[in-house]
Design a protein around this nucleic acid. Structure first.
Lengths: 234, 234
DNA sequence: CCAAAAGTGTTCTGTCTACACCCATGG
DNA sequence: CCATGGGTGTAGACAGAACACTTTTGG
């Protein structure tokens, strides 16, 4: 995939779905699906995303709940509960098989969107930027084990701006949250880089209901160059 | 009201309601109410809080939506949409009239709570701490016009720790977000303090759906010593 | 003049930034 | 031996913490 204009190596991408009914027929929109009585909200969101995009996200978090009376038709107010997901580089290798109605877009070049989905995406991105410091979050994007360069690429993709690699590396290492696995990873013909992971205590240190679901991980390594995210509505 | 143990002058308080039915009969819980078809979620939350506690909050924000299948009875999953409110010192003067089933508690000394309401409160507090920098938020607690000492008290109450007043004052003034109103406020027989307000641009600078509702304000001044917050469920 | 809160100055320390530099590797 | 990314050193700018100090007021 492409490289971003400014000195940034990686890019955030997300899948959109072309609407097949009114309103906004033919426009791009966030993937979505219905609520299921015997499932948690997270499970319903996961299913909605999976069925429309074939993604198996490793991170799923509730974003916001919308309940505008203008959307209601008669009885109860219509409520949309929006989730967002992160998909790591490893999963991505199998994904970009785009279905007929699904297409991946870089977040800095999105098409016109249906409803208020553009605003939802902007809000999700600001939340993501605020949380990128959390190991639980960044791990979903870069994988369990990673080099400092890979971690650096994810930070740049998420923040959208260039970060000095030398300073980044020092900051990360001095945080005490990373440990050297002893492994080396060679990219191309260059000097092999040390492979790190977050220490257990860093991964555990979070309190809220975020990061609750889908802790299953398939032992994958981050190798791709791009960073993927998805939003879904229930 | 009391003074906190450590050098902190003000305290965060919140209202709880004693449950009058099963489950958790007799236990303390967050105020709550039902959803209304012809109202937005915010309006419903506002109504729920108002009817149980007689509060007219000046700040209302969506916290999280719960939808555990374990809560369901048959049909659709039962969903709770939690909002939180901030109530400034001025409003407070009329409030602490506690109804039979409503009582105010300092957040560092809450009773046993029904359901998972304790966890909800903890999450709300961490969110509040993260947002206390935003003029839109702090203004709801301290009022439109305030002295630097009052602002300082709010910061201490919310963060729960002592903050050096001299440094605090410099930081605030150098931020460029405050402007001197020219007014003076005398407390007791001491030197009068300058009264400040946030500049318009600072109050406008926010993006998300938070801070959307209930912009009505009754031109009140913060004079009380305590800071109040409320959570409600819909 | 005293107490108490308002408000100012100064020093110290740690963190962020920019950028020069050295190291390891395969071709 | 050279190009490329991995990795280290260092000097200046800046922001926060600690705390001594001065000012204004009513009693």
């Amino acid at each position: 995939m492409d490289t971003a204009p400014n000195g940034i190596g990686s890019m955030l991408w997300m899948p959109l779905v072309k609407r097949v009914r009114q309103p906004f027929l033919g426009q791009w929109a966030l993937p979505g699906g219905g609520l299921r009585a015997d499932h948690s909200l997270e499970q319903s969101a996961y299913a909605a995303l999976e069925s429309t995009t074939s993604l198996h996200p490793r991170y799923l978090e509730q974003l916001y709940t919308f309940g505008d009376p203008a959307r209601s038709h008669g009885g109860l107010p219509m409520v949309s509960i929006v989730y967002w997901a992160l998909v790591g580089g490893a999963d991505a290798q199998t994904e970009p098989v785009e279905g007929n109605n699904v297409k991946w877009f870089p977040v800095d070049n999105l098409p016109e969107l249906a409803f208020d989905h553009r605003a939802i995406i902007d809000y999700a991105l600001s939340r993501l930027r605020g949380k990128i410091e959390y190991p639980q979050v960044v791990t979903r994007l870069v994988g369990e084990r990673f080099t400092l360069s890979q971690l650096h690429d994810v930070y740049e993709a998420v923040t959208g701006e260039a970060i000095d690699l030398a300073n980044f590396r020092r900051k990360m290492l001095s945080s005490g949250q990373l440990e050297d696995t002893g492994e080396k990873l060679r990219v191309g013909r260059n000097r092999p880089a040390a492979v790190y992971r977050y220490v257990q205590s860093a991964l555990r240190q979070f309190s809220s209901w975020d990061y609750s679901v889908n802790q299953s991980n398939h032992g994958s390594h981050a190798t791709g160059n791009d960073v993927l995210a998805a939003l879904t509505t229930v």
